[in-house]
Design a protein around this nucleic acid. Structure first.
Length: 125
DNA sequence: CGATTGACGTACG
DNA sequence: TCGTACGCCAATC
């Protein structure tokens, strides 16, 4: 009957399939190419507008996640690449953004307001 | 279980 | 307008 039987729940190997982290990953992966969003916007989309810090924390664990989590598209509310130091290379984030057509000047996204992608608005939960 | 940390955000001076 | 202080939430030690 159920296909679910194939999957066994291992308390120790329990993967955060529905945790806050994964929720963040899902939203980040939905960010269109050439667009950017903020931690607060993601947090707000997850019904926790004040959990912006936790969103950044989740990104910290996004490395090595599959599919790849475009963490470079997530910046702070000022459009500043605050998390660039957490990438493989401090300049990797800027390079990735510019590769998608996003201009970055002094660690800040140019025309951030126009490129800003609000999940609560686009996804309209 | 309590204290500390962190890729934020808002409030205040 | 800029800089500093505090708060929020989740995870780690």
């Amino acid at each position: 009957m159920g296909i679910k039987g194939t999957k066994k729940e291992n308390p120790k190997l329990k993967i955060q399939n529905n945790d806050f982290f994964v929720q963040v990953y899902q939203v980040v992966r939905l960010i269109p190419k050439g667009r950017v969003t903020s931690y607060g916007a993601i947090a707000k989309y997850l019904s926790s507008p004040k959990a912006s810090r936790s969103v950044g924390y989740a990104m910290n664990a996004a490395h090595g996640q599959k599919p790849t989590v475009p963490a470079h598209r997530v910046v702070n509310r000022n459009g500043l690449l605050t998390g660039k130091h957490h990438f493989s290379s401090p300049d990797a984030m800027q390079v990735l953004l510019e590769k998608e057509g996003v201009k970055v000047k002094s660690d800040q996204v140019v025309n951030f307001d126009a490129l800003f992608w609000d999940p609560t608005l686009e996804l309209a939960l």
